[in-house]
């Protein structure tokens, strides 16, 4: 399968997806619901890339799109970046307390969230359901209900006989690690310190980089940065 990714011609094995090829070539595509050990799901849409040339391009999720002969892929065009930011904005407004999401936001330079935050504790990425079924062979948890009542829980919401208490679901959940709350826990965005080599909070908190330590400390970089 000869294809071109970001201008690099490459002969990828037939079974690969665009994401695998890009990772092999060292091109970075942010992902959330993708995991090497689990089946691709295509739920978070964060890994979108643009395929095609000229006017006839379209956005596809790279984690589920298999490579094709003659495919032309761009992993970072203006359209891709703005769409990704919008998707991340939606995800963050669903669950602003997730460290994984906040880190992604910092990395992608997202500095606004225009949707009202929901403060849910799940983004329905399906990772826990898949790890439980595919790696733990337990199939103890799954999606229940539909639409805005969608929930992840055990059948009948009761202690499950199948669950082996392995904790795999918690290990993999991107919403389970909570973010550093900073001085302003109500703020939807945090983690601004992630992408700067010289965290501004060092001046404020005298050499204490609380966020990295994983303590529920107060950082406040975001506040200082916003006030500038």
């Amino acid at each position: 399968m000869n294809l071109t990714i970001d201008g690099i011609p490459f002969d990828a094995p037939e079974s690969w997806t665009i994401l695998e090829t890009a990772r092999f070539l060292g091109l970075e595509i942010p992902t959330l619901c993708y995991h090497e050990g689990l089946s691709a799901w295509g739920g978070c849409r964060l890994c979108i890339v643009e395929i095609g040339t000229g006017d006839r391009t379209k956005l596809v999720t790279s984690c589920t799109y298999p490579v094709e002969e003659g495919l032309v892929v761009h992993t970072a065009t203006k359209r891709v970046i703005s769409a990704r930011k919008m998707i991340l904005e939606l995800l963050i407004s669903q669950c602003p307390t997730s460290k994984v999401l906040q880190d992604l936001a910092a990395k992608m330079g997202l500095n606004q969230v225009r949707f009202s935050p929901k403060w849910e504790n799940c983004i329905y990425c399906g990772l826990c359901v898949r790890i439980c079924e595919e790696q733990m062979m337990a199939s103890a948890i799954g999606f229940a209900n539909r639409g805005n009542e969608l929930k992840i829980h055990t059948p009948f919401d009761k202690t499950s006989d199948e669950c082996r208490r392995c904790g795999g679901c918690m290990y993999i959940c991107p919403a389970c690690t909570t973010r550093c709350e900073g001085t302003n826990p109500e703020n939807v965005l945090c983690g601004r310190c992630e992408n700067t080599l010289q965290p501004t909070c060092l001046e404020v908190y005298e050499n204490n980089y609380h966020c990295w330590m994983g303590l529920k400390g107060e950082c406040g970089t975001c506040v200082t940065e916003n006030n500038k």
Binding site: S139, A140, G142, A144, N145, R146, P155, E162
Partner: peptide
């Protein structure tokens, strides 16, 4: 079929009631 999937289907459709 894993129980979680049967349960998922049964809760997905409004015409089913638990």
């Amino acid at each position: 079929i894993p129980l979680k999937d049967v349960y998922g289907v049964a809760t997905f459709y409004k015409s089913f009631s638990l």
